[in-house]
């Protein structure tokens, strides 16, 4: 079975607010996915439904080929690390790690111990006395050492500095290379993680906006800049994703490959062409004010 997750027309509404609207996608085994989008786009809600922590309003959801709700065969293969994970007040770091070793069948104790040293965590300290960054480190350690066939990190690095985040990416790639598994990274720090990703799903306003191989997305958009009239004549008939006027000048973002003919035309019109990075592309696509934002009443 190659599909770890299959989601079809998945919807979650609260009263007349639709948080997730008819979302469909598949997650294949042993790939690293990026679930990207702005805060409040519905990413966390989708992941909560995949892990049976929230109930879908409608739609079909299969994880490891089965319904995840109250299904220990499915749940024991999942590790979901979220930004604001709550722990019992009296729990120490050690309590969390020890319990995790019983809860996750693939738990690697040695790896967990190494990570504790890497992140310089005080084992005996209570969870609620940890700094924000240390708190996040505990989640990262559980997520990595659990080696769960489906591991989900939802904004796992609140309060972590750049060094600690780099350490996380380092350990993630190293361990993933040796122990491939399906990993979902949900984040808005796109530029930091995009290199790690094999496939990207962008959620915007509760809907799937992009579902594409990461390499296909890189170099799939470019921007043209020049005088407004020249730019307008160049972009006619093309898929324009952004327009930024600046005095008599105009910069436009365009998706699609640049043909040799396009390049010549741009030269003739004296236009400057530059590639759009993955981060910029997603920012431009999700930055638009769309009608679906916030969920329109039906």
């Amino acid at each position: 079975m190659s599909n770890v997750v299959e989601v079809s027309r998945l919807t979650k509404s609260y009263g007349n607010v639709t948080a997730v609207s008819e979302v469909s996608f598949k997650l294949e085994a042993d790939k690293i996915y990026g679930l990207l989008g702005r805060n409040g786009a519905g990413k966390t809600t989708i992941m909560h439904m995949i892990t049976a922590q929230l109930f879908a309003t409608s739609g079909v959801l299969k994880v490891f080929g089965e319904e995840p709700y109250e299904n220990s065969r499915v749940l024991s293969q999942i590790c979901f690390i979220k930004e604001s994970q709550k722990y019992p007040d009296n729990y120490t770091v050690n309590d969390v790690l020890e319990l995790s070793s019983s809860l996750f069948p693939n738990w690697d104790r040695e790896f967990a111990n190494d990570l504790v040293k890497d992140f310089q965590l005080p084992l005996k300290r209570k969870m609620k006395k940890l700094s924000r960054g240390m708190h996040s480190s505990v989640g990262i350690i559980v997520g990595l050492a659990s080696r769960a066939p489906l591991t989900i990190f939802d904004e796992p690095y609140l309060g972590l500095d750049a060094v600690a985040r780099a350490l996380f990416y380092d350990r993630l790639i190293e361990d993933y290379s040796e122990n491939p598994r399906t990993i979902v990274l949900s984040t808005h720090l796109i530029d930091e993680v995009s290199r790690l990703l094999e496939h990207i799903i962008v959620i915007d306003g509760g809907k799937v906006l992009i579902n594409e191989d990461a390499e296909e997305l890189r170099g799939s958009a470019y921007s043209v800049a020049g005088t407004a009239t020249a730019v307008e004549s160049f972009i006619a008939g093309k898929t324009v994703i952004s327009r930024e006027p600046f005095g008599v000048l105009l910069t436009a973002g365009i998706t699609g490959r640049l043909s040799e003919q396009d390049r010549k035309k741009a030269d003739a019109l004296n236009l400057a062409i530059s590639p759009i990075s993955l981060q910029q592309l997603i920012v431009q696509l999700t930055g638009k004010k769309t009608d679906v934002k916030g969920g329109a009443p039906k």
């Binding site: 892990t51 922590q53 109250e70 299904n71 220990s72 749940l75 024991s76 999942i78 590790c79 979901f80 979220k82 994970q85 709550k86 722990y87 019992p88 319990l99 995790s100 809860l103 996750f104 559980v142 769960a148």
Partner: peptide, 8 residues
């Protein structure tokens, strides 16, 4: 905590 850590 328990539900997030994959307990039924």
């Amino acid at each position: 905590f328990a539900i997030s850590f994959s307990v039924r």
